[in-house]
Amino acid sequence: MTGVIGTIEAIWRYPVKSTGGERLPRADVGTRGLEGDRLFAVRDAEGKLGSGKNTRRFRRMPGLLHLRSRYPDGPAGRPGLLDPHGTAVPDPDAYLRRYLGRDDVELAREGTVSHFDQLPLSVLTTATLGWVRAAVPGVPVDERRFRPNLLVRTPPGTRPFVEDEWFGRTARIGDGLCVEFVRSSERCVMTNQAQQDLPHSPLVLRAIAAAHEARLDALATVVRPGPVSAGDTVRLV
């Protein structure tokens, strides 16, 4: 497969890890990924990061997905939080302590250890997203369940999980950005969890696990930094 594989339908950035993000018309992409993406996280006194799961590195903090984060002054500044009703909170740290019922949490900027679970860029197609919707009829599904950075609109008739065909390939996005597709993400219970207007449903992860070994999207590294805009062409080279 070579040539045009789709166009950028949506660009998503998540300033605070494990919260809802902001949809952007344009973003700058560096070797770390989208500028400001997951640059902050909710951290507790033990150094664990707020998440929807418990691991050696993460601590489950229910409710984070009902919040949204954004950069009101651009990604060079500190992120702000929106409460579940979409209202900006004046003091994110104080709000998080009340909201989570913990007095040891704060917004922490990334240090020497990356906040990313895996690779810096997640890309998902409308073909795969459409398959998930069809596999779980009656369950509201959109890309927010899978938290991609880039949603690519693929041509009609594109098979689901087409992202698998891109691994090991390089793509040019727009006029300058170049990325290399490496592998897919192994999905976890985060895909099932409620967020904003999306209800909890175990059917989402169950369907992906049965059809595709719980793997979904294309994770990429950045070969050549550059801007990305909605409507940009994505071309395998």
Rank of each mutant, 00 (worst) to 15 (best):
L177Q: 00
L216G: 01
V136M: 09
T170I: 10
A220Q: 07
V182H: 07
R133Q: 12
V139Y: 05
S201R: 06
P148D: 10
V123T: 05
D197G: 02
T128Q: 00
A134T: 09
V139E: 03
R187Y: 08
F116N: 07
P140G: 08
R206N: 11
Q195Y: 04
C178Y: 12
F116L: 11
S185D: 14
L124E: 06
V162C: 14
G130C: 07
E180W: 03
D217V: 04
T126F: 05
L129I: 13
L150C: 07
D175P: 15
E165A: 15
G138S: 12
S122D: 09
A210V: 08
F181S: 03
R187T: 04
I173F: 06
L121S: 00
R133E: 07
G168D: 00
F181Y: 06
A134W: 04
E186R: 13
C188A: 13
S184G: 14
G176V: 14
W166G: 11
P140K: 08
R169Q: 14
Q196T: 10
D175F: 14
G111L: 04
V139Q: 04
P156F: 02
R215E: 14
D142K: 05
F167N: 01
A194M: 11
A220E: 00
V162N: 06
F161E: 03
A135R: 06
R187N: 00
T125F: 02
R206A: 12
R169G: 03
F161H: 15
S184N: 06
F167Q: 01
G168I: 04
V189I: 13
T170Q: 12
E186V: 15
T158V: 10
A218T: 08
V132F: 01
V152S: 00
P160W: 04
R145L: 13
Q196W: 15
T221C: 11
V136N: 07
A134D: 11
A135T: 03
L150A: 03
T170N: 08
P137N: 02
V222Q: 04
A209E: 15
C178M: 15
R187F: 01
R144L: 12
C188P: 10
S184A: 13
L205P: 02
G138E: 11
E165Q: 14
V189Q: 09
P120F: 10
P148T: 05
A171R: 03
L198S: 11
P155G: 12
F161M: 06
A211V: 10
E180D: 01
A135W: 09
A220M: 03
E213Y: 11
L121G: 07
F181V: 09
R133V: 09
R215D: 13
V123L: 10
P199K: 07
V204H: 01
A207C: 08
P140L: 08
H212I: 10
W131T: 05
F146N: 06
T112F: 02
P120E: 13
F116W: 12
D217G: 04
R133S: 03
E110P: 00
T125Y: 00
A220G: 01
V189H: 05
T158Y: 11
P156C: 02
L121H: 04
V141Y: 04
V139I: 11
G174E: 12
